[in-house]
Design a protein around this nucleic acid. Sequence first.
DNA 1: GCGGACAAAATTGTTGACAATCTTGTTTGG
DNA 2: CCAAACAAGATTGTCAACAATTTTGTCCGC
Lengths: 216, 216
Amino acid sequence: MPKEARPSTGEQAKQHAFAQLRQAILHGEMAPAQRLVENELAEQFGVTRASIRAALIDLEGQGLVERIRNRGSRVRVVTVEEAVAITECRMVLEGLCAAKAATLASDEQLAELTELGTAMTKAVADGEPVTYSELNQELHTKVREFSGQRTAVDLLERLNAQLVRHRFQLALRPGRPQHSLNEHLAMIETIRSRDPQAAEKAVRAHLAGVIEALRD
Amino acid sequence: MPKEARPSTGEQAKQHAFAQLRQAILHGEMAPAQRLVENELAEQFGVTRASIRAALIDLEGQGLVERIRNRGSRVRVVTVEEAVAITECRMVLEGLCAAKAATLASDEQLAELTELGTAMTKAVADGEPVTYSELNQELHTKVREFSGQRTAVDLLERLNAQLVRHRFQLALRPGRPQHSLNEHLAMIETIRSRDPQAAEKAVRAHLAGVIEALRD
DNA sequence: GCGGACAAAATTGTTGACAATCTTGTTTGG
DNA sequence: CCAAACAAGATTGTCAACAATTTTGTCCGC
């Protein structure tokens, strides 16, 4: 019973509302600190308030919205200090994933990383920051995936969701791609040579650079 | 308007149900994989189903219960492999906290750690594993607290909640306290000497030991 | 003009009933 | 005796109405 491809109705209202709201927040369609009134959202998404309510509780658990008793829900704003703290956590967790990936990844998977590396180099050479940002994202995702560490992956996805706004700002900064490219290539190289400690170190160095860039 | 001390009603039903359910699960009053029927819980706690429902969604977000569409909720069982994966994440995150604590903690806070160390030594000498386990818990909590890393602390609390059952088993193992005491004292010492890198290393060594003990 | 009490509006929290879905036990045809 | 279809029961998902709370705007006394 493959029941895909019908996002409008019959998919289970709460899940629908949840996914839609989450996407809206992640895509920046909801302004930071914007009020999220349950009635409005219910009407907007064509579901009942109960579903919206459940979705909001879920999103609160993921740290994407803030809920105050009898006062409503708002899109959570992530301050720069918080973004730094989050990235520090990413640093150690992705370091763990990289170390595991260095020992667990298959040869085909290592080849994928190599391929990504050349693509990223090309994107920088061609001066396409958007493409580079996407490849960047893909690289981090693959490393996590290859680590086989589901717990860490879950935590990282939660953390990353909170950073969308800041990530966007960072990606379009002039000179930034060139600077981070070397760090990324180092990550790939250490994983390819199956050196867990070096891989962890490389990832940390990279994210330490991101933290530095965040502060300004 | 301090409205404490009335857990029966009027406190906000959902919060009450949430706290109570969480406590019940954490204290092991709910058997692993036990079915959690919304109606039963609602009657048991004297709240309506909607409140139980909201609480269950929250608990799902914290990884304490599993919810399947139209099939109900159950207490999530953490396999040994998962416990290992979780502890690996704890390892890197607590390492981060220890490093930060080493640079940020005040002198009074360092004194608290020293005090805890002597208390733990005494508990082991007196052969009181339960006391030792509590002090152990307190030590980890304090280190996290002193780090000032709210994001990491949140993640760690979530992870620790999932480990209660395994932790309990581990604490009562003969010979284990003696073994871990040295690791704990090393943690305290490195933080006291304000050496972030050594502190991180000590925490990792300790939790690596825990992981080893988990596997059997 | 200013501050506090008061009332009205808006919004969230709660409740009970109904619908949809899944599980389980039974029956029927082979 | 077994398998598939069916029916009954249990459980979760959804809904609309009601209650409680907070916010906002207004009015009165000073």
